[in-house]
Design a protein around this nucleic acid. Sequence first.
DNA 1: ATAACTCTGTACCTTTCGGTACAGCGAGTC
DNA 2: GACTCGCTGTACCGAAAGGTACAGAGTTAT
Lengths: 187, 187
Amino acid sequence: MRTLNERADVIPVIAEVFREYGFEGASLSRITETTGLGKGSLYHFFPGGKDEMARAVLAHVDGWFEREIYAPLRDDVPDAAIVRMWRGVDNYFRSGRRVCLVGAFALDGTRDRFAAAIASYFTRWIAALRDALVRGGWPPAAAADSAEEVVLGIQGALVLARATADTAVFGRALARLQTRLREPPVM
Amino acid sequence: MRTLNERADVIPVIAEVFREYGFEGASLSRITETTGLGKGSLYHFFPGGKDEMARAVLAHVDGWFEREIYAPLRDDVPDAAIVRMWRGVDNYFRSGRRVCLVGAFALDGTRDRFAAAIASYFTRWIAALRDALVRGGWPPAAAADSAEEVVLGIQGALVLARATADTAVFGRALARLQTRLREPPVM
DNA sequence: ATAACTCTGTACCTTTCGGTACAGCGAGTC
DNA sequence: GACTCGCTGTACCGAAAGGTACAGAGTTAT
């Protein structure tokens, strides 16, 4: 019964290939090379081919964020959950050295094919953060605005860090957004 | 002597294909289809093939921003130049319906190939905006920070607008960033 | 020991990829 | 009318794309 185990092990590796090259750029030959698996094994685990691999990878990323970020934001003490989010995000994106797979897919022509998964990733993130802020005493409108600003800022920081090959941008952006969430609006 | 004229006419069309599908996804067949030009004409204008097309497109985008945004930020009255930037950006990105070609290339595996052009586009934008703020009376450190925040915020907004197929995100982000540049820091 | 089942390598398929070669068209020039 | 010269369509190329077929190895259960 190693099937499930090994399939699960391969997904993060494939994810890295998609992350690095995008959907179109992630050729099967690159995937087989990186994973060390031949086409035989690959199509055994993912009969649907590249499309299924991408879906599995998106689901994997989504699962991680749901578990580590969204759920805590919805259920835990707001302040603690938000601290956890900052730590988790900085860790996940390797302080700007790693790019967001979902964001990369969104800009690609790939978007339409995985539209639902891509949109859901972002809207649920924003909704969860907004809820945490509201539970922390923020006015709903300001909470919604700031939640959107934070998620969008993280994506922008990743684009810029990658574009300029300067990971410090990411750290500065996180710091800026972080202070902004610490001081509730004056309204 | 129609050569230069027509080549110049084709570049924006090719740009749209790259913007929509990314470098890898923009196949020659899609380009011929969209431009209405056969391979013969295409390789007549761009002997270097896809690579040269991408470089021409990047140069075209860069030229537009240099002329319409960066130069005014450096040379004109700061307030007016910044107002012009907001108008120009909203217009250029069609209020979030259009994606940033340079940002898309940055996330792609394409980045390395065009690294210089991609990095320069962003660093010059940030530098120009920072200069305008400093000339407008901002402390240099705060100006640098806010300039980075604005450029990064625009990129993030484009990612999110595209990801959620909700252009309103872009408008809200622009409004937020705009108010932030209107009130100089307290420090 | 054998049967069943999971996994893997190899060979092969069609389509599309980026790119090339080139003959010819049409609008100017002399 | 002949001659450029800029442009275009067509046919073609080898390589790589994504995907399939399948025999067999390795393990596990009986």
